Computed example of a mutant assay.
Amino acid sequence: MNDSVLHDLAALDGALYAAVAATDTPALDAGLRRLSHAANHSKINLSVAAALALVPGRCRRAGLLGAAAVGVASFSANLLGKQLVRRPRPDREAAQVHVDRHVPMPTSASFPSGHTASAFALATVVGAVLPVAAAPLGLLACAVGYSRVHTGVHYPGDVVAGALLGSSCGMAVLAVGRKVGAGRVG
């Protein structure tokens, strides 16, 4: 990508972040702050995966593959992506993100969003194995991603990258799961 395209994308990312920060949403602030906090350390994702893994059949498979996808996405986002890109976190004070939205500002790099990557990895895998869960988990993943921008700890581009990374990790885990499942002797 040439420098002018990267500059324009960064400008768009900053403008979207500022627009979210400037939009008054007092009815949403507390709920999105709680959701963002609840998604720390993949607590929501791993809880869903564990609950599914307790149910025999396709639910168990969805839960086990979902947990694996969350692990792969978390590793990819937090130990690879953030270390390679090292994008600074947004300055939410300069953007005047309302204090009622604040969650603790992480000390890690901003790009990509690990919360979003993990949520999309789970949604991708579980949705493929249990199609009835695709829409609710997809909506949850989108809400987790948006909550990270709403609370001021990520730029929208970090969340988009996290969603793409998480979905890709989920697809990779599904592909490996199919190969491992096909190699089993009945």
Rank of each mutant, 00 (worst) to 15 (best):
N2K: 14
V5P: 10
L6C: 15
L9V: 15
G14H: 10
A15M: 06
A15Q: 10
L16C: 14
A18E: 11
V20M: 03
V20T: 10
A21Y: 04
A22N: 11
D24V: 13
T25F: 01
D29G: 03
D29R: 04
R33P: 10
R33W: 05
R34D: 15
R34N: 15
L35T: 03
L35A: 07
L35W: 02
S36I: 09
S36Y: 07
H37Q: 11
A39V: 10
K43D: 14
I44P: 01
S47V: 11
S47E: 08
A49P: 05
A49Y: 04
A51C: 04
A51P: 02
A51I: 01
L54W: 07
P56H: 10
G57N: 03
C59F: 14
A62R: 02
L64S: 05
L64K: 05
G66L: 07
G66Q: 09
A67T: 04
V70R: 04
G71Y: 01
A73K: 08
S76P: 08
S76Q: 08
S76V: 10
L84Q: 12
L84K: 13
V85D: 13
V85T: 13
R87C: 07
R89L: 12
R89M: 12
D91H: 08
D91G: 06
E93M: 09
A94N: 12
Q96L: 07
Q96T: 12
V97G: 02
V103I: 12
M105C: 15
M105K: 14
A109W: 14
A109E: 15
S113L: 02
S118T: 12
A119D: 11
F120S: 11
L122Y: 08
A123V: 04
T124K: 05
T124H: 07
V126L: 12
G127M: 11
A134G: 08
A135L: 09
L139S: 05
L140M: 11
L140H: 09
V144F: 02
G145N: 11
G145W: 06
Y146H: 03
R148N: 08
V149Y: 00
V149T: 04
T151P: 09
T151D: 09
V153L: 07
V153Q: 03
V153R: 03
G157D: 04
D158C: 08
V159A: 04
V159M: 03
V160L: 14
V160H: 05
G162M: 00
G162Q: 00
G162L: 00
G166I: 04
C169W: 02
M171N: 06
A172V: 13
V173R: 06
L174Y: 11
A175V: 09
V176T: 13
R178M: 00
R178W: 00
V180M: 00
A182L: 10
A182V: 01
V185Y: 07
V185G: 04
G186E: 08
G186T: 10
